[in-house]
Design a protein around this nucleic acid. Structure first.
Lengths: 206, 206
DNA sequence: GTCTATAGCTGGATAGAC
DNA sequence: GTCTATCCAGCTATAGAC
């Protein structure tokens, strides 16, 4: 027997998982504002009252969904940074459309929901620290001057560019994207050689 | 007499302007989802039915608000790029919190409103082309190798970093921000010298 | 655990008085 | 132009049957 949970069933029952899956799909398809108990139930093939049974309220459902995705991202990122090509790994993962779109929705949602805001902030710092450790080590091995190119800045540069490109692509704006991707990848290639395509595929399928 | 408008009063009456101002404040304070006709009326000190008189529906109100802000941004950016320090101008304007927060809200809103999505995409391309012209000219004057640093990539780099930093700051995450700002500004300084603070102030007060 | 039913509220939108 | 009144849809959340 696991230690007794505080209040509501936190186990991974089929219905609970179906609700979380449905919430994720809805957020991606129609935005967070479209996530209602009725639509969740319809998509998950269950009942709307189950949302309250499993999560208590909508805020806590969003937080549970965020955590589920965040933990998955964390492990993925950690694997990428621990691989033979940490920079390629970071770049390829950050450039993944689905997770970026979800993060965007959560950020918008957090603008007017304090509990969710706090959750995202907490996780962001944890995530950043982990990434930083990985990148620092890699750049040191490559002999990159940390005065001129601090690891944390390389991290922010790559993340920022990646996110910006993805947001624009969602709007069908792609002016200059190819040149910029080429620019970033040229720099990565200089440091850790050609991208190992098998490695990339293994990462993104996780 | 101006040429007759098609359908609804497009003039800048006090009530119309008050509604747009209220919508902007609400979006910044509570997110786009909080913008309702009733709240608008309350904040603007008018009546909720006026939204339909002036704008037809909520979508068209959002579009009118977007255009108002977009035109203002366009002129501001054009002025900055035409100044003696186009790079500093671009950097300082892109790093303005209020307009970035608004853009984020509109992007989230556009995720499930087709009309708004189209409006943003159209404007983004126009905006990008204008910025590109300015940056291209500046970089050419500074003798920057356009093979190694395409103007459009410089633009995307600066915009992406800036937006990323601002989003994180909204969440209270600032790890590595100072180093990264310093890095960008060092590069700008190498190209066009110290930032002219009077110029910056003039730009941001517009 | 899962369901129905429903209370209570807030929203967009319109008709029509002034 | 600006207002009141109102319709109807959709939402969160809860009570209680099974």
């Amino acid at each position: 027997m696991p230690p007794a949970r505080k209040k509501n069933p936190d186990q991974d029952t089929a219905a609970r998982t179906a609700l979380l899956d449905a919430a994720q799909e809805l957020m991606l398809e129609e935005g967070y504002a479209a996530v209602s108990t009725r639509k969740l139930a319809a998509k998950a093939g269950t009942n709307s009252a189950l949302v309250y049974y499993y999560f208590g309220n909508m805020d806590d459902l969003f937080i549970a969904l965020f955590r589920r995705g965040a933990e998955r991202s964390y492990e993925r990122q950690a694997t990428a940074l621990g691989s033979r090509q940490p920079l390629w790994g970071l770049w390829d993962i950050t450039h993944d459309l689905t997770s970026t779109a979800l993060i965007q929705e959560f950020q918008a949602l957090a603008n007017h929901r304090k509990a969710i805001r706090a959750e995202i902030a907490k996780f962001s710092r944890k995530f950043r620290r982990m990434q930083l450790d990985g990148i620092k080590q890699a750049l040191a091995e490559y002999g990159v001057d940390s005065e001129q190119w601090p690891a944390v800045s390389v991290l922010i540069l790559m993340s920022g560019i990646s996110r910006f490109l993805l947001v624009e692509e969602e709007f069908g704006v792609t002016i200059g994207h190819a040149e910029t991707v080429a620019l970033v990848e040229r720099h990565i290639r200089n440091l850790e050689g050609e991208r190992d395509k098998a490695l990339r595929k293994a990462l993104l399928s996780r």
